[in-house]
Design a binder for these strands. Structure first.
Lengths: 118, 118
DNA sequence: AAGGCTTACTTCAGTTGGTAAAGTAAAGAA
DNA sequence: TTCTTTACTTTACCAACTGAAGTAAGCCTT
């Protein structure tokens, strides 16, 4: 990616800015732990991307992977402490989305005005 | 992108998860306002990407653009209130980067252990 | 008068990252 | 014997990003 490694914001951006990464962390935090649960929860993700993302996050020490030698195979994923430490970012994103990116877009102007008043 | 529009985290992710977007917002917050300043600050960004990103952020109401009809041309960019509202996310990312992604990678294990102790 | 200077871009060809659809393995159930 | 389930991988394709170069516009030097 060739971004400045001395900047902590850049380092975090490299970890976090892949598509789906933060949504995946959120779902893991909310209790989804299996591949197909995550696949269903992240409607639209391709299994290839989910697989790549999980592997990358595992390498970075953000998720832990536990395999159970059963049939059909069972694999569970969980956040490490390093992964859970990302949750404040997600909480800020939730707040921002609620406050500034209203689901019905006509409201966004109103809320901008409301913000100016507050 | 086909992500769930009813989820505020997803809505924010769509705005924010382009490469460079958050770094650009950070630099705008820190006072960079002109195209070439941003280009220098975001070492490695292509002018095409910077241009596309600025336009997209302008459309989303995150950045304001002011052109001055001078020669050589001058264009200044600034964050709107909606743009400044992204700064807590960036602050969290800075904290995460400092705490969990140490510049000298050998330290990351140590800091994980330190975290477990705290 | 010719050419260089600066800023703020655009254009083009090429690489990287993500998607869609299908395939694989393994063993118990019908 | 074929069907099911889970957790993927494979292949081919498309969209986003990169790097290098080019453009416009007018003041400044030679």
């Amino acid at each position: 990616m060739a971004v400045d490694e001395t900047c902590p914001v850049c380092r975090t951006a490299e970890v976090v800015c892949g598509k789906w990464t933060l949504l995946l962390v959120r779902d893991l935090a909310e209790g989804c732990s299996r591949f197909c649960e995550l696949e269903r929860s992240l409607a639209g993700i391709s299994p290839r991307t989910l697989s790549l993302r999980l592997r990358a996050l595992e390498e970075e020490g953000i998720v832990e992977r536990h395999t159970f030698p059963e049939v059909p195979p069972r694999v569970e994923y969980a956040l490490t402490a390093k992964g859970k430490a990302l949750l404040p970012i997600i909480q800020d994103m939730r707040f921002y989305g609620e406050r500034w990116l209203a689901a019905d877009c006509a409201e966004s102007v109103k809320s901008t005005l409301a913000a100016a008043v507050l």
